[in-house]
C-alpha cells in the first residue's frame, strides 16, 4: 500500500504505524489458486472462516463464507479443511 504521506512535517517523531487493511497491499495478487465456494454444499459450519490465516473470509449473517479476493492469498486451507468439500481451488486465469 503506498502512502499519501509526503512531507517530513507530517511524520510522527518515531514510527507509529496505523492499523490498516492492506498494510502489505492487495495481497490477493499473490494467489495462483482461487477458492470457490459451492453454497449449495456449504453447511455453515464456519470452519473455513476460523482457519483462514488472512482474515480474508467473512462470516456472513447466515454463517456462510464470503471470500475477499482482494486479500485471499490462495493458500487453500479453507478447501483442505471444509468437511463437505464445498470449497474447490481453481487455477487463476492469466
Amino acid at each position: 500500500m503506498s502512502s499519501s504521506l509526503k512531507s517530513r512535517k507530517e511524520m510522527p517523531l518515531t514510527p507509529l504505524s496505523s492499523p490498516s487493511v492492506g498494510s502489505m497491499g492487495k495481497t490477493g495478487s499473490w494467489r495462483t489458486f482461487r477458492p470457490e465456494v459451492d453454497n449449495s454444499k456449504c453447511t455453515r459450519c464456519t470452519i473455513c472462516w476460523i482457519y483462514c490465516p488472512d482474515a480474508a473470509i467473512t462470516r456472513q449473517d447466515d454463517d456462510s463464507p464470503k471470500i475477499d479476493y482482494d486479500y485471499c492469498k490462495g493458500c487453500g486451507i479453507c478447501a483442505n479443511e471444509c468437511p463437505v468439500k464445498a470449497i474447490t481451488m481453481e487455477r487463476e486465469e492469466g
Binding site: M11, P12, P15, L16, S17
Partner: peptide, 28 residues
C-alpha cells in the same frame, strides 16, 4: 512523552521502516 501505548488509539510502534522513511526519523 511524545507517544503512548494506548488501547483506545492503537498503533504499532517501530515496525519495519523502509529506506523511503528511515532517514527522516534519524534527522528528527
Amino acid at each position: 512523552s511524545g507517544w503512548i501505548l494506548d488501547v483506545n488509539r492503537p498503533v504499532s510502534h517501530a515496525n519495519l521502516v523502509s529506506p523511503e522513511w528511515y532517514m527522516e526519523f534519524r534527522y528528527m
